[in-house]
Amino acid sequence: MRRFPILLFALFALSFTVQAEVKDVYDFDTRAEEQRYQNLIAELRCPKCQNNNIADSNSAISQDMRDEVYRMMKNGASNEEIVDALVSRFGEFVQYKPPVDRRTILLWAFPAIAVIGGFLVVVGVVMRSRQREQQGETLSQEDKRKAERILAGESDESAKG
């Protein structure tokens, strides 16, 4: 475990030499910061072209928004603060990740609801088929009558309820 800090230092030094050879368009002290910046601009939508995030868009407004994200990051703003600042100017439209609130709770919860619901239905089908089989094995009086009905070609809808 002792070696860990040294490793970390080596990693740092490495990333530093990497940075030194050519400047990034937006210069960051660490790779982590740069990655954070890249993730952030990939989650913001360009209000002008509307089909791109601001990382990919060539429009002037995306340029300005990237500048603002960079400026705020340099000033130590958190991701939420940066997104809020842009949302307060351009609207909720610019965030590709919809906020979790009253309107969107259904959206966010949907996958869980669908999977759990579907899972329960399948379990229900399996349980039922097993129940019926057990009933069939014990063959109660009623089941015998039912079996007779079925053999006679009648519907057994009533048994289902």
């Binding site: 209000p47 002008k48 429009s59 002037a60 300005d64 100017r89 351009f90």
Partner: peptide, 8 residues
């Protein structure tokens, strides 16, 4: 313009 949310 930026503060007003002008995008074009």
């Amino acid at each position: 313009g930026f503060d007003l949310g002008v995008y074009g």
